[in-house]
């Protein structure tokens, strides 16, 4: 088996998932300048809710599996959009003009609340994804790839293209970009910034829900704490790409996924056997720090250095 191509595939899958979650961070940041710390928890809820629907329908109805899966997907997306909408209304909107760190703290608070609510609802057990996707393996360039991995990468690409089109072409996208530039001016142009902000949160939450399901189906059992690390990594990806920049989040997600995956594959060789794959995150963060030292605004971020 060829380590390089295998890690490339693993990295692409991981990166696609990071990118989907990172988009939610970066869209909210672009408009509100706020780190939505609770976004990782939305991903977790996406996984949890879809699981709950799957189990309920599989157990109590005789619907075809594909339909059940579709219902679970839609249910999770709908739930997470409602959740994203409510979080913004409850925890962020009252603090729109507050000092910068205040909404960061409510975001942390929300994250804690959501995590523990999930624990009360679903308990502390690891919940695995039901066996409904027949896994097929293929060999490409000496690496194993499954139909699930292909599906994740393809779906992620489709979603990102869709989002890109939405933002560049649609009325909503135009309004979002205008609001990100200047909420006041956008309001003067007849755009209701509150609606745009709500829409942004819901859009990000929908992507996070899908990512949550992907994680659950591909990486393993869901757990009420799963959102924290995922969110952290995705936020890292967003910053890496240049926070507030949509294309940056996509690129940052992929780069981070690849870094982690290659890090896991090669770190032992690189450090002469001193570091094992448990240093994967160290590797990722070190690369992040190095990139930011040379590009302080991320890979695709705006250069702010010379603006006074």
């Amino acid at each position: 088996m060829d380590i390089f191509s295998q890690q490339l595939i693993n990295g692409l899958v991981l990166g696609s998932i990071y990118a989907l979650i990172a988009l939610g961070y970066t869209m909210v940041y672009g408009i509100l300048g706020l780190i939505n710390f609770a976004h990782g928890e939305i991903t977790m809820f996406g996984a949890m809710v879809s699981l709950a629907i799957l189990h309920a329908l599989l157990l109590h109805t005789g619907l075809p599996t594909a339909m059940i899966f579709a219902l679970a997907l839609l249910g999770a997306i709908g739930f997470c959009m409602a959740l994203g909408f409510s979080i913004e209304r409850v925890a962020y909107r009252p603090l729109r003009n507050a000092p910068r760190l205040a909404p960061l703290i409510t975001a942390i608070g929300m994250s804690i609340v959501l995590q523990n609510t999930a624990m009360l609802i679903w308990g502390k057990k690891f919940l695995s994804f039901p066996d409904i996707i027949p896994i097929q393996r293929y060999q490409i360039a000496g690496a194993n790839i499954t139909n699930l991995q292909v599906a994740i990468i393809v779906l992620a690409i489709v979603l990102m293209l869709g989002l890109w089109t939405l933002i560049q072409r649609s009325r909503l996208g135009r309004a979002m970009r205008a609001t990100a530039q200047s909420p006041e001016l956008a309001a003067l142009m007849g755009i209701n910034p509150n609606r745009i902000i709500s829409a942004t949160f819901m859009l990000g939450a929908a992507l996070a829900a899908i990512a949550g399901i992907m994680v659950n189906a591909y990486y393993g059992p869901a757990h009420y704490t799963m959102g924290f690390m995922l969110g952290l990594k995705a936020f890292t990806a967003a910053v890496l790409g240049g926070i507030g920049n949509i294309a940056g989040a996509m690129l940052g997600g992929l780069v981070l996924g690849l870094i982690e995956s290659f890090g896991a594959g090669y770190i032992s060789q690189l450090s002469g056997g001193f570091m094992g794959s448990n240093y994967q995150s160290v590797f990722a963060f070190t690369v992040l720090i190095i990139i930011l030292v040379f590009r302080p605004s991320g890979l695709l971020g705006e250069r702010v250095g010379e603006r006074v």
């Binding site: 940041y29 570091m275 448990n278 995150s281 160290v282 963060f285 070190t286 720090i289 930011l292 302080p296």
Partner: peptide
């Protein structure tokens, strides 16, 4: 290394630094 970074970029780098230290503490037994 973080002197040029502003706001949230600084936040993520310091966060990464904290994690790096913790991971080293966790793994420096071999």
């Amino acid at each position: 290394p973080t002197l040029k970074l502003r706001g949230d970029y600084l936040a993520i780098v310091t966060l990464g630094f904290g994690e790096i230290v913790r991971i080293f503490l966790n793994n420096l037994n071999t």
